[in-house]
């Protein structure tokens, strides 16, 4: 067990050191959310009057989108970190880790924890920007939001690790980005309210970890909102969100570690 913990820590440390070293990534991390805010806040919400909201519900599109922006930043950062295992394989570092006398599942777990740490840093910046979206946060609320974002990040990174472990080359990378990341995002309901969608879409929605993540984030952020507003925003009870999300972390974690252990 000591070996496993040490391995998790080592791989986590590597992710963290790399993150600190990559200045462009840190700049991107601050810049990207600001960009979302500008586009969503000024562009989209001005262009389309938010018509989906039922009459009497006083909610700006930016407010509606805020949890979605949080989820989006975590989604991108996490899937990218997970898939980066392909880079490690291509450019060698993975071999160094795979010949070490350590359990491989611990490597996958360390990778996921490292990626989640980086994702949470980005999320923290977004949380600091909450006033721009007219969202009021308290310290305990920030803690709860980070906890949910952490679960989302773990689930998505493990998904990335699982996929990367099955991929032979880097060529599939663009495909994954197009056919996985964007659908994950749109299906989650982060962009538009998922009422009145076709049955097939609603079915797919239920398999998307982000659906429950976004739902949980909305529960937390709009906890004090009018019940009518809340009913419009969320689809599942908060506890269901948490349970399903945790379940998905465990299942994807198992899959990610398993595929990762069996590669090479």
């Amino acid at each position: 067990m000591g070996t496993a913990i040490r391995t998790v820590y080592t791989i986590w440390l590597r992710e963290w050191l790399r993150f600190l070293r990559e200045r462009s990534r840190i700049i991107g991390m601050i810049g990207q959310p600001l960009l979302y805010f500008l586009i969503v806040g000024q562009g989209i919400s001005a262009a389309m009057a938010f018509r989906a909201a039922p009459p009497g519900v006083n909610l700006s599109y930016l407010q509606f989108m805020y949890p979605g922006i949080l989820a989006m930043s975590v989604l991108f950062t996490s899937i990218f970190s997970g898939i980066s295992i392909i880079w490690d394989r291509e450019f060698g570092f993975l071999k160094e880790v795979l010949v070490a006398p350590v359990p491989r599942w611990a490597i996958a777990l360390g990778k996921a924890l490292g990626a989640s740490t980086v994702a949470l840093c980005q999320a923290t910046i977004l949380l600091a920007l909450a006033p721009l979206a007219q969202v009021h946060l308290t310290l305990p609320l920030v803690g709860k939001l980070l906890a949910v974002l952490f679960l989302i990040s773990l689930a998505i990174t493990f998904m990335g690790v699982a996929i990367a472990s099955r991929m032979e080359t880097m060529e599939g990378f663009q495909m994954i980005m197009n056919f996985l990341v964007m659908p994950l995002y749109f299906l989650s309901g982060a962009m538009f309210p998922l009422a009145n969608v076709p049955a097939w879409m609603s079915a797919l929605m239920h398999f998307d970890p982000l659906t429950y993540g976004v739902d949980a984030l909305r529960h937390l952020i709009f906890a004090d909102a009018h019940p009518q507003v809340l009913a419009f925003l969320v689809h599942f009870p908060f506890i269901t969100d948490l349970l399903v999300l945790t379940g998905m972390v465990l299942v994807l974690g198992g899959m990610g570690s398993w595929f990762f252990s069996r590669q090479v």
């Binding site: 000591g2 590597r14 050191l17 790399r18 070293r21 450019f91 060698g92």
Partner: peptide, 27 residues
């Protein structure tokens, strides 16, 4: 101990960091 045919260092990290991570992995 192994030196692979292809580079297997983490080139974003320093020399010392590469060795440090290795030492940690080997307990």
């Amino acid at each position: 101990g192994i030196v692979f045919q292809d580079n297997s260092l983490d080139d974003r990290l320093t020399a010392a960091e590469n060795l440090y991570l290795h030492g940690l992995l080997y307990g």
